[in-house]
């Protein structure tokens, strides 16, 4: 077993009402392309903005970091939109192209011009543990020097407006202990 010691630093924790997500996104990110995508994409972008603001990595290091994000029910608004439109005889290309679990992270890759490995994991409550395990493997195998690992969830509670509900994302920075100690924080 590889025994690389990994430091984990929680950096971002966002827990907002869906309506407040839109306000926070507008005020803190504002990348207009994401307005056409879905709330999941805006949430992930908001989280990464927080990482840039509060985390220890400079822009360049962040671009080279690997991203491993997990979600139980990703991009459901886009899935619903395309499915509902299809039944009404409307096939909306944008709705389909955004109805993929990986689109929120792909949006972040596009917005921030990421260069590292980016992986979206899906599944039940165990997905967070799998995210951390994968992040550890990526460091152990030297696929990346830093891994941004986290989970997000957009949960719409009321239909049909779906404006009530919560949007949550947590991001942590993983890196080998030796690298972590060379940054301005010390674990």
């Amino acid at each position: 077993m590889n025994t690389t010691l990994i430091a984990m630093r929680p950096v971002v924790r966002v827990d907002l009402a869906l309506a407040d997500l839109e306000i926070a996104y507008r005020d803190q990110v504002g990348w207009t392309d994401a307005y056409r995508i879905n709330a999941d994409a805006r949430l992930v972008l908001l989280g990464i903005q927080g990482l840039l603001r509060d985390g220890p990595l400079e822009d360049e290091a962040l671009r080279d970091a690997a991203f491993v994000l997990g979600c139980e029910n990703p991009s459901m608004a886009s899935y619903r939109e395309f499915d509902t439109g299809m039944r009404a005889g409307r096939r909306t290309a944008l709705a389909y192209s955004h109805a993929l679990p990986s689109i929120p992270l792909a949006s972040a890759a596009l917005c921030h011009q990421l260069r590292g490995h980016t992986y979206t994991l899906v599944g039940g409550p165990e997905v967070g543990l799998r995210v951390l395990a994968l992040g550890r493997h990526m460091l152990a195998s030297r696929r990346a020097r830093h891994v941004v690992a986290g989970c997000w969830c957009v949960h719409a509670e009321s239909a049909p407006t779906r404006h009530s509900g919560r949007a949550r994302i947590q991001l942590a920075l993983l890196q080998p202990v030796a690298a972590a100690s060379s940054h301005r924080y010390c674990p």
Partner: peptide
Amino acid sequence: WSFTAQMGKHGLRPSDSTLIST
């Protein structure tokens, strides 16, 4: 994406299962 619960019949545990969607 409710896969992992079905994997027990093959001897695979949900906690050892990684579902990738890229």
